[in-house]
Design a protein around this nucleic acid. Structure first.
Lengths: 88, 88
DNA sequence: ATGTAGTGGGGTAATTCGGGCT
DNA sequence: TGTGTCCGAATTACCCCACTAC
């Protein structure tokens, strides 16, 4: 099935993350993001991969928040939600 | 999409609020402001969200809405759409 | 084949991160 | 409780030039 394997250039990914194209290249070099190399050596990234990293790092099942617009208390220690694969 | 999804760096947000970048980081850690992390661990903030906080529209009566209005429509309009038409 | 734009690689400065303290 | 500053460390941004992509 086609997961939208649209290939993006480093410049595209950089614009999405608001970073420098060189930084995106560094991510690929560090193995933090999948990269496809062209015969010339340039890198190309998958749209699906970048999208997953952009906001839904945890790919959590986004539930409808229509029944709770009143919660202003951050006391939800049960799980803030997006527990990205942080390792910093 | 067109909500001005321009991402800002902690330094930018800090300059907007006249506070230290560290303080902005605390807000993100407290969940008071949405934050997007780069594979490297750095944070990026949405211009629209920062703007709402600056305007004070985010702390009206109780309309605190820091969540992300995820459009669960049938169409995956979440994407920016036809950004590049056959670039490579 | 030539030209423009983007990309790659290396190196250095600036920013940000994380935790702890005043 | 919330903000600003300290530290060390990692990550990122911008500089150069050479090569690739169209």
């Amino acid at each position: 099935m086609d997961t939208g394997d649209r290939l993006l250039t480093p410049g595209e990914v950089a614009a999405l993350f608001r970073v420098d194209p060189k930084t995106v290249t560094r991510w690929a070099a560090a193995g933090r993001i999948g990269s496809i190399r062209t015969p010339g050596g340039h890198r190309r990234f998958r749209e699906s991969e970048v999208r997953a990293l952009l906001e839904g790092e945890g790919m959590l099942d986004e539930a409808e928040d229509v029944g709770k617009p009143r919660n202003v208390g951050p006391a939800t220690s049960t799980g803030p939600g997006p527990a990205n694969a942080g390792m910093y």
